[in-house]
């Protein structure tokens, strides 16, 4: 039996800002149909990693391959397979939900009947069909996030990258989003990389990767991570790993 082709293969990424080393040899490989949580305290390098994975920044060294396509050599092929939810909201508040989604569809080469279907399906997936003609400005924070997730899935990506997607949301909205994404992982064989510093929202993840000071310091199933740390909960394990090392 052959191993599944990784949706993303990250190898030896380093990135420095002056004397500050934001990423220090990060290597990671993600499989389809798995929910991977990237846990790290503020300043661990999560956002830098996401900016490199989305082609916004270039790493000092190392490589990223999305389904075999090298991000540096063939960025359009690599980006075509990614769905991205940025940490900072990126909806145009002055446009309607539908106009925002149509804009994204155009950027991803989805037009005509396919575009209409993709918009309908994406909105239905997150229970947002009613908001279609509303200006984004009038939506709640939770609904805006759902629209951003719906938008990221319109191009049928192999990997969904989410950078602290629950930032600013109330606990109920947070739980709702996590459940939605977990269901998509199973139903669509989607690979997910969910970056956060909130441990409770990723306790049901298939895999947890702990990033601290630009390095991967732990990687495994949540139960294994907890067992190896000697703590009784994932939160305890995370604190032991990051605060213990910070001392």
């Amino acid at each position: 039996m052959t191993a599944p082709v990784p949706v993303i293969a990250i190898d030896g990424l380093t990135k420095s800002y002056g004397k500050v080393r934001a990423l220090d040899g990060v290597s990671l490989s993600l499989e389809p149909g798995r929910f991977t949580a990237l846990l790290g305290p503020n300043g661990a390098g999560k956002s830098t990693l996401f900016q490199i994975l989305t082609g916004l920044f270039v790493a000092d060294s190392g490589s990223v391959r999305v389904l075999g396509a090298d991000l540096a050599a063939d960025p359009t092929a690599a980006l075509a397979r990614l769905g991205i939810v940025f940490q900072q909201p990126s909806l145009d508040l002055d446009l309607t939900v539908e106009q925002n989604l149509a804009y994204h569809a155009g950027l991803h080469g989805i037009g005509g009947r396919r575009r209409r279907d993709a918009i309908e399906e994406a909105l239905a997936l997150f229970g947002q069909s009613e908001t279609r003609r509303q200006r984004v400005r009038t939506l709640s924070g939770g609904n805006r996030r759902k629209i951003e997730m719906a938008r990221a899935l319109m191009s049928a990506p192999a990997l969904l990258l989410l950078d602290e997607p629950t930032q600013g949301l109330d606990p109920a909205s947070r739980r709702d989003l996590v459940l939605h994404v977990s269901r998509l992982v199973r139903e669509r064989d989607l690979g997910v990389l969910w970056a956060t510093h909130i441990v409770s929202e990723v306790e049901a993840a298939d895999r947890v990767v702990v990033l601290h000071r630009g390095r991967v310091i732990e990687d495994g199933a949540p139960a294994d991570v907890v067992a190896r740390s000697g703590a009784s909960t994932l939160e305890g394990a995370f604190l032991a790993l990051t605060q213990g090392r910070a001392a």
């Binding site: 989305t54 359009t76 075509a80 991803h108």
Partner: peptide, 18 residues
């Protein structure tokens, strides 16, 4: 500043074309 430029710059097309 509001984040929408990221959407354009991460579209799967050559950046010069965008």
């Amino acid at each position: 500043e509001v984040g929408t430029l990221r959407l354009l710059l991460t579209a799967p097309l050559p950046r010069w074309y965008l």
